[in-house]
Design a binder for these strands. Structure first.
Lengths: 167, 167
DNA sequence: CCCGATTGGTTGTCGATACAAGCAACGCTA
DNA sequence: TAGCGTTGCTTGTATCGACAACCAATCGGG
């Protein structure tokens, strides 16, 4: 097992910077949301995904997939958000094993109030330092990486149309 | 406060994929290292940074900066790694407030043993799905993002020469 | 139908990080 | 050389996520 293909200089340099971003970015997003809305980025993302769904409702499994989370993690988080009145859980009628998570009116308000500050943070730290070409490159590169690490290949088909206050 | 610049379609799509990668990649790196070496990616990175340093030694603050970590976090992690015999801490002679963290021979062995599997994982999930041009793009984009979020702008000057088994 | 296997979800426990507080050493200024 | 602010690091507490075990409902074959 001595035939290891080490990273060359360019690859190593890019990788180190990528690691730094992956390490630092969550903290940036979390602290703004924590400060302004008492929400972690993941919690915000859960609410945002629900706000886009038909009838603001998604099954736990679907929501887990939309937020790149494991089911146990999501279960804990939704339980907390339910206690705070942002989400309500109801049994699913078609499949009685399943649970529907629905964004309440209060939860929707929360997203609407929180979105502007969050988008500003995303712009300042990620989007605005990039050119339009960079954004295309970023999309292409992330798509390629996701093709390996995304367990469900949700992003491959490449649907998605115009959207709104999403994120 | 109604003059929010929402993300356009391209920006939103790229951002969502980027978020997915930031969410999923740590798990990929952690589980390989946990399985094969009982190390988290952060722990491995700490050992790797030390292995590159002169005399395999760095002050805690320098090591924190090299690994993009806060000092409390690093302090806990180094304490664990010290218990396992990979690192030893000694008081710094020049500045008696400071602590030197040094990679032991056992720790160096650990890095040497662990690096090949880790590099393979990084290749499979990140580098190999990309073209050489993609790697350049990734480097450029991450540099731009870091210029905002890296509290110390370590990556701007753009030094770094050829390197070895690093990472 | 009936039973084993799978799917959907929740819960409990443990380990790890963030944040704040604390302490010791340093260095500047007068 | 005294005092005050800063720097370097450690420790304690509270919170969050991973993992495994678990339960209930559904599906598929005989």
């Amino acid at each position: 097992m001595n035939d290891v293909r080490w990273l060359n200089s360019d690859e190593l340099q890019a990788w180190k910077k990528f690691v730094a971003v992956v390490e630092l970015l969550p903290g940036v997003l979390d602290s703004q949301l924590q400060r302004d809305a008492e929400l972690s980025h993941f919690e915000y993302f859960v609410l945002a995904m629900l706000s886009e769904a038909p009838d603001r409702t998604l099954r736990m499994t679907g929501l887990a997939s939309a937020t790149n989370a494991t089911l146990p993690r999501l279960s804990h988080v939704v339980a907390r958000l339910e206690k705070r009145g942002f989400i309500e859980r109801t049994p699913c009628l078609e499949d009685r094993r399943a649970t529907n998570a629905r964004l309440t009116d209060v939860g929707f308000e929360k997203v609407v109030d929180t979105a502007p500050g969050h988008v500003t943070t995303v712009r300042e730290n990620v989007v605005d330092p990039l050119t339009a070409a960079d954004v295309d490159d970023l999309d292409r590169i992330m798509t390629r990486i996701l093709s390996t690490i995304d367990p469900e290949h949700r992003f491959n088909p490449g649907a998605l149309g115009e959207t709104q206050p999403t994120d």
